[in-house]
Design a protein around this nucleic acid. Structure first.
Length: 773
DNA sequence: GCCG
DNA sequence: CAGTACG
DNA sequence: CGGCCGTTACTG
């Protein structure tokens, strides 16, 4: 019933599209008012004329940015927004019982039967009023673009149900993207196509007039290649709009990072061989000509120059809009994080359609004709010298040979060589990394090169904010690290835990081709470096760092002088270099000794234990983790002595420098995060104290020893066994709802003994040094 | 991404 | 509440 | 197809 209704609407909509093509203006609004799902107001918003604040090339403040999210990159007067809310409500009000069933992005059917269904750009034009009311249930990518195949196998069907990002994060909203090469046969590209769709854009297969971006997905493609392709495709030379030619990476990842549409003409986004910007010589306010010459694609520039002015006058007014000029004389290209607000392309191509309609239609035909061609020919490139740039992201702080007895772990292949004959015969135990011991990897891992490349991809996905893929890569890398033989074939790789067919194929390809040039673009990128800089500040994560960058800050000094900082962040900046340094094992011990002796003075029954990577045998650590406990003492007692006596004492003695995060509640807080410094040193160290009652020591030891992957793994295992594990204990009979919502506390099973927790969970005991996943 |  | 940090 | 650690703890 609902489906039928939807189908009708879809059909009707298509009809409208077709008829609209003949030149009639859109008039489908009323019919849809009551049925379409309620899209957020922006869907029906006219693209606001951007008024770029002359003040800041740095872009809006984070706050402004946030505000603008809801209004497609443009700050809206509040009245405007509230009005749209009203619209939304009224649209849902009467006779809309079906509305709920039609989530904006959850359509079941294909909206159009033909992948080439071209929708007149009028459809998304927004200048005139009636559109204000149109509630269109088709997501933009279906309405305007072509639906790529699903991300599964090569024979996948069209991905009909791509989950879009929340509107606020759709940084590519309403963009029309043409890829080069422009097909979805290769999985990486298909993934990228999906990504831009999730970000609110549409992907088109054929050339059309409303394309806003051409994205090249490999950095070795050149400007002239693209140009050749497009001209061959008949790109009309009278095309006068600005079409930006960018490298997907790093453009899209960085747009995601900064939560906004970045200036595509920044140097780092340009395709190799693209005309270099000379904007520095150009007047900022009237740089229509120069602005065209940068990131924007020019086909037959000279001819275009001749025709540009002519068609421009009666077509897109965009060029005169200051926001289109992403230049700042004082900043070289590539260094500014300028925001190109929405619709920098100009949203009324229809006004100028007539001007180049003939050329265009021909171009479309030609492009269609060649659309199926294998543009994919991978020009092999030599082992791109992906030198060991930061090959050590996870700098193993573990010593090669932990002091404890070291089992020969050369037989570490998780799947026993015997029973795994079946491809899917992985032992259940192998799905938990906590089950199999893993010490420090040998320094010369036979798979180091593969790991290095996978690590780069891992970082890439991290940039894309794809946390789960990142997680999967981490686990796969961890598995690979444990291998003592070189994994060379996909078959070989696929039997390893956390390495599925797709990663296995990638591994094989990496071994064979030794290729991956992904990081090349980002590692030299100043923005990326600034991001890393800011991420190193204690108290700042991706969100904050991105906001800072987006606000135009580039140095720590910028932050100190201009940014609003939390107290932790201030300390993090002041002692940035201190906290970035590794702490030698001996110094970790010295800090521990200081605490222990102070504690002994206060009350000999207290004890302190150094945890963290130190307990895992690391030769140096990033910080100092110490558990403080006392037999038969409550949290309150511990808290009282530590917070009222120990901390003040060590602070006045000069050992403790400051606090970063400590329990606010006076009696049951269990953690103290702060900074310490040895008397004969000037380097401040991060110090974490954990107050633990004796009965929770086992769980606390487990937690504070780590590492993090190990902890997550063993906690997941507990969860799967109907238990729950946290830093306080192991609980059983935990009832969980459908989404792991914990419904009851469960019964405490064990908290005192670390070993017993292992036993109860059925995990073979692992020495601290073997808990490196 | 992997896994069940 | 989101963001960050901890293993 | 949905989950992927912790009803972790702390800050603002």
């Amino acid at each position: 019933m609902l489906d039928d209704a939807l189908r009708e609407k879809t059909a009707y909509f298509e009809q409208q599209e077709l008829s609209d093509k003949d030149g009639g203006d859109m008039s489908l609004g009323d019919s849809y008012l009551n049925i379409g799902p309620v899209l957020a107001d922006s869907e029906a918003m006219p693209p606001p004329k951007l008024v770029r604040k002359p003040s800041s090339f740095l872009g809006p403040t984070p706050k402004e940015l946030q505000m603008s999210f809801g209004a497609r990159g443009v700050k809206q007067p509040s009245s405007f927004r509230s009005e749209s809310s009203k619209l939304e409500r009224s649209a849902t009000a009467p006779g809309t019982t079906t509305t709920k069933s039609f989530p904006a992005t959850g359509l079941r059917q294909r909206p159009t039967s033909s992948p080439q269904a071209k929708v007149p750009e009028r459809l998304k034009r927004t200048t005139s009023l009636p559109d204000m009311k149109v509630k269109n249930e088709l997501p933009f990518y279906k309405r305007v673009g072509v639906i790529p195949r699903e991300l599964k196998k090569s024979n996948a069907k069209p991905a009909d149900n791509i989950k879009l990002e929340p509107e606020g994060r759709q940084v590519l909203r309403d963009k029309v993207v043409y890829f080069y090469p422009n097909n979805d046969t290769s999985m990486p590209r298909r993934m990228r196509i999906h990504k831009i769709i999730q970000l609110g854009a549409a992907w088109v297969r054929a050339w059309r007039e409303d394309i806003t971006h051409i994205m090249v997905d490999e950095s070795y493609h050149t400007y002239s290649q693209v140009l050749r392709h497009l001209n061959k495709a008949g790109l009309p030379c009278r095309e006068q709009r600005r079409i930006f030619l960018v490298k997907f990476d790093p453009y899209v990842p960085q747009c995601i990072q900064f939560g906004t549409l970045l200036d595509p003409s920044a140097g780092r986004f340009l395709v190799k061989g693209a005309p270099i910007s000379n904007r520095t010589a150009v007047d900022t306010d009237h740089a229509s000509q120069s602005s065209e010459s940068q990131g924007s694609l020019q086909v037959k520039p000279s001819l275009r120059q001749l025709t540009a002015h002519d068609s421009q006058t009666h077509s897109t007014p965009t060029e005169n809009s200051p926001q289109n000029v992403n230049s700042d004389p004082s900043h070289p290209p590539g260094s500014s994080q300028e925001i190109v607000k929405d619709s920098f392309i100009g949203d009324e191509p229809n006004e100028s359609t007539d001007a180049y309609n003939d050329d265009l239609s021909q171009a479309i035909q030609e492009t269609k004709a060649i659309a199926h061609l294998p543009l994919d020919e991978e020009e092999e490139e030599g082992p791109t010298s992906s030198i060991d740039h930061d090959s050590d992201s996870g700098t193993d702080d573990e010593i090669p040979e932990p002091p404890s007895k070291r089992l020969k772990l050369s037989t570490s292949t998780p799947a026993p060589p015997k029973g795994k004959s079946k491809g899917k015969g992985k032992a259940p135990s192998s799905t938990f990394q906590c089950m199999n011991p893993s010490g420090a990897a040998s320094s010369a891992n036979p798979n180091s090169r593969t790991i290095e490349i996978l690590d780069q991809m891992c970082k890439y996905y991290d940039q894309m904010q794809d946390q789960w893929r990142t997680f999967a890569y981490r686990k796969a890398i961890s598995t690979l690290r444990k291998q003592d033989t070189k994994i060379t074939t996909a078959k070989e790789a696929a039997v390893l835990p956390f390495i599925g067919q797709r990663l296995a194929d990638k591994i094989e390809e990496i071994v064979l081709t030794d290729r991956l040039r992904r990081l090349d673009s980002t590692r030299d990128d100043p923005t990326d470096q600034v991001l890393r800089l800011f991420l190193g500040v204690y108290g700042a994560g991706l969100a904050q760092a991105s906001k800072w960058i987006q606000a135009g800050y580039r140095t720590l000094d910028d932050l100190t002088t201009k940014a609003k900082l939390t107290s932790s962040q201030k300390i993090g900046i002041e002692h940035y270099s201190d906290f970035a340094q590794r702490i030698p094992r001996t110094e970790v011990e010295a800090h521990g000794t200081t605490i222990k002796s102070a504690l002994r003075t206060l009350d000999p029954t207290f004890s302190a234990t150094i945890m963290g990577s130190y307990r895992r045998g690391a030769k140096d650590s990033g910080d100092i983790d110490i558990i403080i406990t006392k037999p038969s003492a409550s949290i309150a007692q511990l808290h009282s002595l530590v917070f009222k006596t120990l901390i003040p004492s060590l602070t006045s003695s000069g050992f403790l420098k400051c606090k970063l995060a400590t329990s606010s509640r006076t009696d049951d807080g269990t953690k103290w995060h702060g900074v310490s410094c040895l008397p004969d040193s000037t380097t401040w160290r991060r110090l974490d104290l954990l107050l633990v009652p004796e009965e929770e020591m086992g769980a606390a030891l487990l937690y504070f020893t780590g590492n993090d992957i190990f902890n997550r793994s063993i906690r997941l295992l507990a969860s799967k066994k109907g238990m729950r594990l946290n830093q306080r204990g192991l609980y059983r009979d935990v009832v969980r709802g459908r989404n792991r919502e914990k419904l009851n506390e469960g019964t405490l099973v064990e908290g005192r003994s670390e070993r017993k927790i292992f036993e109860i969970l059925g995990v073979p005991w692992r020495e601290p040094g073997e808990r490196i996943c």
